[in-house]
Simulated assay, not measured.
Amino acid sequence: MPENDEVLPKYLRISGHIRDRIERGELAPGDEVPSERDLASQWRVARPTAAKALNTLRQQGIVESRRGSGTYVARRPRGPVADEHAPRYGSAYAEDASVTVLEAAVVTAPDHVAEVLGLPRGTAVLMRKRLTGNESQATEVATSWFAGTLAELAPRLLRTERLTDGTLRYLESVTDHRVSHLRDRVAARLATADERRHLALGRPAAVLVHQLTLHTADGAVLQLDEVVHPPAKWMFQQEYSTSS
């Protein structure tokens, strides 16, 4: 997949990732979100950048701060969809969002997945595919990939039920793995037949793909997420002055 890491400012990528976790149920209302210090360490950015990411979510009503405690998912988040002028990155949080696990299985890794996970071609991997949407439309198809060796250690990955505590929290609870940093890429391509079917797209249709890798301290990739969005789902807006 072509790299396009500079498509948005880093703070928007961080806030977008947190919104995605909230939408998928990995962070529920009342859950604490990563601190400025943790975000700065995971994303390898300065503290002010991490603070700006959290402030973006705070202004959109998605998170709230508690003095002397931390930052938490709002009990009744408004969501950025309420503010048409807010910058968007990833899935915009929506109160009526629903998530369905379409498939959870051991499959032969596609070549690009094997490469990212550092596995030989043709290796068996775990795959979880989810469809997110609301009452009117499907908004994204997300596929998570894991090394096949996790099948015995993390059997819930093979069940078609939501991991309400979040995939990462579950993995860290049943293994010795700890994520030290994240890396994301954004690219556009034509939708596959499966993606067109789930997202109700015509043929041909362009989609935006957000690829996120979760790395352990030794550099290994614990999880690869690929989130596919239909046209016009993502929006990035800036205004520039033409005066000298």
Rank of each mutant, 00 (worst) to 15 (best):
H177K: 05
G133S: 13
D5W: 01
S91F: 07
T149C: 04
P110I: 00
F146S: 05
V221K: 00
S244E: 14
L157V: 13
H215A: 14
I14V: 11
R130H: 10
T108K: 11
T167F: 08
V7T: 08
A220M: 06
G219S: 03
T149W: 00
R78L: 14
D218E: 14
H85L: 11
V141G: 03
S180D: 14
T149A: 12
R197S: 11
L182V: 12
E135P: 01
G16T: 01
P110E: 03
H198G: 02
R189Q: 08
T100Y: 07
P120W: 05
V73C: 08
T167D: 11
Y93L: 14
G25R: 04
H17Q: 05
V73D: 06
R121Q: 09
A97N: 13
V186N: 01
D31F: 00
A74M: 04
S243P: 07
R197D: 12
R76K: 15
T143F: 06
K129H: 06
K129I: 04
E36A: 07
D225Y: 03
G148N: 10
R67Q: 15
T100N: 03
L126S: 00
A220P: 02
W145H: 13
L208E: 02
W234Q: 08
S244G: 13
P29Q: 00
A82Q: 14
E64R: 15
R130K: 14
S244P: 11
Y240A: 13
